[in-house]
Design a protein around this nucleic acid. Structure first.
Lengths: 204, 204
DNA sequence: GGTGAGCTACTTACCGGTCGGTAGCCTCGG
DNA sequence: CCGAGGCTACCGACCGGTAAGTAGCTCACC
C-alpha cells in the first residue's frame, strides 16, 4: 500500500521509470530483445547495469513492462479516441487511421516491440499480453458485426475481417519509412479506402 | 571446375545440405535467430557444433542460406504457379491464395523466418534479401497497374495496394493456428473476398 | 539516521567460432 | 588386387568474449 503524501516525489519516480522504459524500448526496438544487452540498455538510460537493476527485476519483466506501457499508449491514442463513435463503420475507419498513424509515426517504439516480439515473452507475462491483444480483436469483430446488422457492411466473417484489418494496419511497421514516397496521411487514407471499398471498380 | 562423373554423390551432398537448412530453420523459427544457439542447431542436425561448422561459414551466412532457400521455395510454390495467368485480376487472386496457403501450412519454417527476421541480416546479405523481396512487390504492383489499365481494378495506388495485399497475406504468420476455428481454405478464400471486394455492401 | 538510487567489482554460464585430429571411403599407380 | 595418398565429414577440447544477474558499498537528501 503506497502512502501518497508526496505526490511530487511519486510523480518524479514514475516519470523516471517511464523514461527508463522509453530508453530501453529504443534500444530493444533497434537491436531486438535478444540482441539488446542489459549493458547497452543501461547506458541508454544513463546508468550502469547494476543501477538499472535497481529499477527492474529481470530482463523479461522489463520487456513485459515496456509492452504494457505500449498497450496503455495504444489504448489511449487509438481505442479511447474512437470508442464513442456511434456509427460502427465510422468507428472502424477512424480506428484504422489512428492505428496506422500510431505505427507509422514511429514515436512509440514500445508499440513496434509489441508487434515484433510477439513470441518472445513466456509464461504468465505472455498470457497477459495475449489477453490485451485479444481484447482489441474482439473490439474490431464487434464493430464489424454491428455494421453488418445495420446493413452498412456486407455479410463477411467478422474474425477474418478483423485479422485482415490488423494485417493491413500493422504490417506497415515492417515497410513504412519516413524517407519514402508515401506520407503517413497518404498511407492511412489510402489503406482505409482500399480496405473498405476493395479493388473492384464501382458497379454501374 | 568440378568433375561431375558422380552425380549421385553431388545430389546426396546437396540433399544433406538442404536437410541441415531445414533442421536449422526449425530451431531458428522456434527460438528466434538470436535465441537459437549454434549448439542447439547442431544437435537438431544430429551433429556437434564443430561438425556443423564444416558445412557453413558463420551463423549469419547460415541465416542467409535459409532465407534464400525459403525464397526459392516461395518462388516455386507461388510466383511460378501464377505468373502465366494472363488475366491480372485472376493472377492476383491466385497469388493470394497460394501465398496464404504457403504461410498457413507452416511446413516451410524458412518462409516464417524470412517474415520474422526481416531486420536481422546485415551488410550485403541484407541487400540481397531486400532485392528479392522488392521483386515480389514490383510483381504485385505491375499486376495492379495492368488491372487498372484493363478496367478490372479501380484507380488505386498500386504500391499501397501491394503492401495492403502483403499485410493481409503475411500477417497470418503471427496469428494463424491449425487448432483454431478457421481452416487454411477458409482464410485463403475469405481474405481474397475481403481484399478484392472490400467491406461495403453491394450497390443496387 | 534511514532510505532510495546509484556505483564498483564480481560470478557463473554460455556464446560463436576454431583447432588438431581421425574414421571411412575413393582413386590410382604398381 | 593391393595399399598409399587424399578427401569429405565429422568430433572433442578449447578460446576469448560477453551475457544476465548479484553482493555490498557510498552518498545525497529528507
Amino acid at each position: 500500500m503506497l502512502d501518497k503524501r508526496e505526490p511530487s516525489n511519486g510523480e518524479d519516480a514514475q516519470q523516471r521509470y517511464q523514461a527508463i522504459l522509453e530508453s530501453a524500448a529504443r534500444v530493444i526496438c533497434a537491436r531486438g530483445y535478444d540482441g539488446a544487452s542489459m549493458q547497452e540498455i543501461a547506458e541508454a538510460c544513463g546508468m550502469t547495469k547494476a543501477g538499472l537493476y535497481h529499477h527492474i527485476e529481470t530482463k523479461e519483466k522489463l520487456l513485459l513492462a515496456i509492452m504494457n506501457y505500449g498497450m496503455d499508449l495504444f489504448e489511449k491514442q487509438v481505442i479511447s479516441q474512437v470508442i464513442d463513435i456511434a456509427d460502427p463503420l465510422e468507428r472502424l475507419k477512424a480506428c484504422m487511421v489512428k492505428n496506422i498513424k500510431l505505427v507509422t509515426s514511429g514515436s512509440s517504439k514500445e508499440v513496434t516491440i509489441i508487434l515484433h516480439e510477439h513470441n518472445t515473452l513466456t509464461g504468465h507475462g505472455r498470457k497477459e499480453m495475449n489477453a490485451r491483444k485479444k481484447k482489441y480483436v474482439r473490439f474490431l469483430e464487434a464493430a464489424v458485426t454491428e455494421g453488418i446488422k445495420r446493413g452498412q457492411i456486407r455479410r463477411v466473417n467478422p474474425t477474418l475481417a478483423a485479422f485482415s484489418f490488423l494485417g493491413t494496419v500493422l504490417w506497415t511497421y515492417k515497410w513504412f519509412r519516413h524517407e519514402g514516397e508515401l506520407s503517413e496521411e497518404q498511407v492511412a487514407n489510402g489503406m482505409v479506402d482500399l480496405f473498405f471499398r476493395g479493388l473492384m471498380p464501382v458497379r454501374h
